[in-house]
Amino acid sequence: MTTPPDQGELTVRFLLNGEPVAVAVPPHWTLLEVLRYRLDLIGTKQGCDKGDCGACTVQLDGKAVPSCLVLGSAVDGRAVTTVEGLRGPTLHPLFDAFDHAVAAQCGFCTPGIVMAAEAYLRRLGRPVTRAEAAAALAGNLCRCTGYTKILDAVVAASERLHGAGGG
């Protein structure tokens, strides 16, 4: 009953972490499945199957979305940024702040939270309060931390990224 009808795989072209890619995608695969199981971008996690937890959050055209609720074929012509896209020669300020605050315990929700936080901080372009950070992250569940140190870290990163003396 689940054999896909005969459309074959679609070739989807998009910007992935800044690089143009062309990926063959079965029509019924989600972006999450394409990232994890076709492209081995395993930083995007699977937690709840259906948009309830936020572990699979990536950025689509710069906005945080759950990749388990996006069809792989739907990103044709668009820009997808995963947690791997924040890697560089130096530790991104969000990673550094999370590490410093010990905001990641098991770390399974952390890539999704970092992607949601990065999109939010970039859009606001200024230091944020704990309450603002909590509202921005209210689609991402964490079971380990009680969010306390996550909010500490996001506030600290926002000050470093966009503070008076920051760059």
Binding site: I42, R87, L91, F95, D99, V102, A104
Partner: peptide, 16 residues
Amino acid sequence: HRKVDAVDRMRGVARY
């Protein structure tokens, strides 16, 4: 302390 394995977990390097 920072945790010895946190950065790899949060950056999506650690393989669960």
